[in-house]
């Protein structure tokens, strides 16, 4: 029976290969497009809808500017300075902050996660602290961070740290915990001692988990960054969050929305980059 149906399906193949014969629904047509093209087409579709709604109902620019206004605002931003500088200055300022907070979260989160998986008592010592801080949203740290670091980049980096830290720590910890104990046994019988086992067995085996933690940490860090720039950024006059705030204070909705769009684009680029890295670190997996 299974053979029969497989045959039947095979005999349909030529018909499917000739699209002209069959009338296809709109859904099928969209699905058949290559990924990038489909996203592009749909994005364009929504921009048209946005434009249409604004124009059709004569919405005021202060309430909701149309997409052409927003895009041209973004383009003008490329050379027209606001605050500390033009577009690149702000994007760069945000990314540098992100990387500082993220780097600090890696520097503490990865070794601590490893240590917690390695020395059981540490797990029980750290866990309560973790439970305590878990439900404090990163942005709630912002005012406190200003006590310590003043209102500026360091306070913002600290807020990013608080949001990246947990996913990095937890994924590293779980990654090491989930290492197949039989591999550790194999290493021991080959003569490996604890440091060799740590660096040559536990760490490589846990690496895909660690990288997943980094990806999540970077994404949550990026979210926290913008909030941090809005709350704790009064000292420095740069960053994408600062642009949002400027737009709001000067009643330029196009600037605010433009900065939001940029944040979305940059965030997805960062995620894409780390996904690519993730694949490279898991080359040996199925």
């Amino acid at each position: 029976m299974a053979d029969g149906s497989a045959e039947a399906r095979a005999s349909h193949l030529p018909a499917e290969a000739a699209p002209a014969v069959i009338t296809r629904s709109l859904g099928d047509r969209i699905e058949a497009l290559p990924n990038a093209l489909r996203v592009g087409v749909m994005l364009f579709f929504w921009l048209v809808v946005w434009y249409g709604v604004v124009e059709l109902f004569g919405v005021s620019k202060d309430f909701l500017p149309n997409p052409i206004d927003v895009i041209s605002r973004i383009i003008r931003l490329a050379w027209e300075p606001i605050g500390a500088g033009a577009l690149l200055t702000h994007a760069w300022a945000s990314i540098v902050r992100l990387l500082w907070g993220f780097a600090a979260a890696i520097a503490i989160g990865v070794p601590l996660g490893l240590a917690m998986a390695y020395f059981r008592p540490l797990q029980w010592i750290v866990a309560p602290l973790f439970e305590l801080f878990r439900y404090i949203p990163p942005i709630a740290w912002a005012p406190f961070a200003m006590f310590w670091f003043g209102a500026g980049s360091s306070a913002q980096a600290y807020v990013i740290f608080t949001s990246s830290f947990a996913p990095i720590l937890i994924n590293t910890f779980r990654g090491v915990q989930l290492v197949d104990s039989r591999l550790i046994d194999a290493a021991r019988t080959l003569g490996a001692k604890s440091w060799t086992i740590l660096f040559e067995v536990a760490l490589p085996a846990a690496l895909p988990h660690v990288v997943t933690g980094l990806r999540i940490g970077l994404a949550t860090g990026w979210m926290a960054l913008i909030a941090a720039e809005i709350v704790a950024g009064t000292g420095s006059r740069d960053g994408l969050g600062y642009l949002i705030l400027q737009g709001q204070q000067q009643l330029h909705a196009d600037l605010t929305i433009g900065a939001m769009v940029l944040i979305g684009i940059l965030g997805s680029l960062i995620d894409l980059a780390i996904r690519t890295a993730e694949k490279r670190f898991a080359y040996w997996r199925d």
């Binding site: 197949d180 039989r182 591999l183 194999a186 019988t189 080959l190 490589p204 085996a205 997996r285």
Partner: peptide
């Protein structure tokens, strides 16, 4: 290493 063992499930390092 003086007591080498071949495990039932091979236990090779996949990476």
């Amino acid at each position: 290493p003086d007591k080498a063992i071949v495990f039932q499930n091979f236990s090779l390092f996949p990476w």
